[in-house]
Design a protein around this nucleic acid. Structure first.
Lengths: 259, 259
DNA sequence: GTCTTGTTGAAACGACTGTTTTAATCGATT
DNA sequence: AATCGATTAAAACAGTCGTTTCAACAAGAC
């Protein structure tokens, strides 16, 4: 019934001192959970890799699940500090007065940081843990959304919104998803992509070109999508405009039910 | 030692007759593997849901893993037949003579089919199984790559290549990834996205607008990226040509090594 | 010294796992 | 009707799982 076990003292921070049984457990658990997943990892594996006893996991973290949650917390706190290391983003109003060149530089750095954190070797546990969380969401997922994804998305929307000031918010959101989607794609389908490339990991040159392409492609996408009204697909030019709708939100028409 | 158990007769086809113990097992396993994953699903769960005995799984499929592999095979055969139902794509040479409007229609249908198969409710097991296979690749992954992903990618490259005939193959490949990535994003981060939308599943309107946006955004990206020479990263432009941009392709310059 | 408190070690518990064994059942063929 | 193969049912097997128990140990307080 020990009182100092860290599952009673939420202390999320916990610098990685490395020594100490609980830290070694956390490190071992991070690696194994990322590599094999929650169910496929036994606390005996974790204890063995940490050079600790089977009971130590329960003593320090209450349960296997508690250990897993702690792993996720620490990992996303790490990512967050990585992403925030360039300082805060200027407020939206300021961004809108920045030059296009500056905005593009901001966007580029965002994309490059994402690639560095999630995709470029040496692979960190972040990506695998996130992928697993998308397969089997746990109690931590809402926390990750609120504390990590929402703010990151908001900042991206600020940048993109400044790049296409005439576009409505919904369009800006979709554009952010398009940009982030392009990047995460390389992480999510990594096993497939590596096999098609015939590599063991992404070459540095590959991730470099990936970043450049995503930015270029996205700038083109923004240019086309971001001119005021949302262009419908088979774009009958802007007049007849039959079925009501005032322009932007209007999705597309026909061809919706494919076949 | 039964001789007719289907793990001895690979018979991948196997129409879904529905009755028959082995079919019920396969259906139950498909749903449970998709929902909970391989390790978190026990053959007792599967047998119970199929109204069969615990031993029937091993009798018909040899092992739990054999059952899982069969599930994946059938599932991707299904997807393939769904995608191919519009008939074969014209050969590349023919595509290059098609009008831009026709090519865009082809691209649009591809995107819409992907969304329909992978994302739009009612959710099919395909997406979840694919996501899990990206977390923990099995022996089937190479088969899926060769029999499903490679041909699909090749067809996409044919369409995109015809849309930007001046672009080198590597650029076409990257563009295909950008397009597919935008779509798959919505499937891979679905738990996060649904939480941010405050919905239980993607509304029909949402997936409609998603398809329209992806096509529009991508056409813009193609237009910018697809004009001739590949915009290399640090691209010393082909001649002095300071940074008085000529507008279009010129990639980005410096800023490659973020920090 | 003793007592207290925080931590580790070894062993065991009960539940559940994938798999195998053995017998019973069904259906068509002879 | 008898036979034989394919299929199903029930039970058991050996192993692993997360978790708990409890004794041993360390170190500071008194």
């Amino acid at each position: 019934m020990a009182a100092a076990a860290s599952h009673l003292v939420p202390s999320v921070g916990r610098l990685g001192n490395g020594d100490g049984t609980s830290e070694r457990l956390l490190d071992a658990a991070t690696e194994l959970f990322a590599r094999r997943g929650f169910h496929a990892t036994s606390i005996r594996d974790i204890a063995a890799r940490a050079g600790a006893n089977v009971a130590s996991g329960h003593y320090h973290y209450g349960s296997k699940r508690g250990l897993y949650l702690q792993v996720l917390r620490r990992q996303f706190a790490n990512v967050r500090s990585l992403v925030d290391r360039h300082g805060p983003l200027p407020p939206t109003a300021v961004l809108h007065r920045r030059s296009r060149r500056e905005l593009i530089a901001l966007l580029t750095r965002r994309v490059e940081t994402m690639i560095e954190v999630m995709i470029a070797p040496p692979l960190q546990p972040h990506g695998a843990l996130m992928l697993r969380e998308m397969c089997d969401p746990t109690d931590v997922m809402p926390i990750i959304v609120d504390e990590f994804i929402r703010p990151q998305t908001a900042e991206m929307e600020a940048i993109v919104g400044a790049l296409i000031p005439a576009a409505p918010p919904a369009t800006v959101q979709r554009c952010v998803r398009s940009i982030v989607g392009q990047v995460l794609f390389y992480r999510f389908v990594m096993p497939v992509m590596l096999r098609m490339l015939g590599k063991q990991s992404y070459p540095a040159r590959f991730t470099r070109e990936m970043a450049a392409h995503v930015v270029e492609f996205s700038l083109g996408g923004l240019a086309r999508v971001g001119r005021g009204r949302m262009p419908t697909l088979t774009a009958r030019r802007r007049r007849p405009q039959r079925r009501g709708e005032r322009g932007w939100p209007r999705g597309r028409t026909r061809r919706t039910r494919a076949r």
